[in-house]
Amino acid sequence: MTPNGLVLETTELAKQFGRLHALRSISLTVELGEFLTIFGRNGAGKTTFLRIVSSLIRSYSGKVTLFGKDLRKAEEDTRRRIGFISHESFLYKDLTVADNLTFYGRLYGVNPLQESVENIIARVGLEEKRNVVMRALSRGMKQRLSLARAFLHKPELLLLDEPYTGLDERACEILDEVFEGFINEGGTIIMTTHNIERGMKQANRIVVFDKGSIVHKAKTSDINIDDFRKEYREIISQ
C-alpha cells in the first residue's frame, strides 16, 4: 500500500493489439479496502485492464503502481500479493484436492505449507475429498476448491474476471459471501462483470469501460440502480 492509502494507481494506461486500441489513457485509483466493479460490454477493455494489473500482459504504455511500487520493477513481489479468480478454475483435473493446493502453495512459497493446505481444505469443507482428483468433484466442490486456491497465499488484492459466469444462483451467493468476508478482513477487490445487480451489490464504486476508455464512474451510494441500468444500456447500445 502507498502512504496515501492507494492499492492501485494507473496513470494514462494504454494498450494496443495491432491496430486495435484495447485501452486508451486509463487513469484510475483503488483504495485499500475498496470494492471496485468495472462494467462494460465484450471488448471494452475490462479483461485487458485486469491482465495488465496482474502482469499477465507486460507490454503497455503509461504507468501502473501497485502496493506503492512500479509494476514493471516489482512484478514477482506484486504477483505474490494478488489473488485472481475467473470463470476458469485454474485447477489440474488429474491432481487431487490436496495436490492441487500443495502445488500452488509451493509456487507461492506458502509457509507452513502442509498446515495451510489442511486449514484451507477444512475451511472450504473438502476434508473428506482431500485425496479425490479434481475431475471427480461436483461443480460446487470445484468452485470451493478454486476459491481455496485463490485464498491459499492470503492475497491482499483480489482480481475477479467475470467470476459469476456459468454459476447457478446458490453458487453466486457463496461467492458473494466469500467476497464480503474478504473485504471485511481488509482486502481490496477489483471485479469485472456484465451483471449489474451482482456488480453493484457489494461495490463501493463502479466504472464503465467502453472502447478502451472510462466513460462513467460513480460511487454506488450515489447511484439509483434503475437509472444506472438505463444509462448503461444506452452506453453499450451506442
Binding site: 504477483r79 494478488i82 485472481f84 475467473s86 485454474f90 500452488y104 509456487l107 507461492y108 486456491r149
Partner: peptide, 8 residues
C-alpha cells in the same frame, strides 16, 4: 494463466 500469475 495461473502459472503466469505465480510469483516465480
Amino acid at each position: 494463466q495461473a502459472l503466469m500469475l505465480a510469483p516465480v
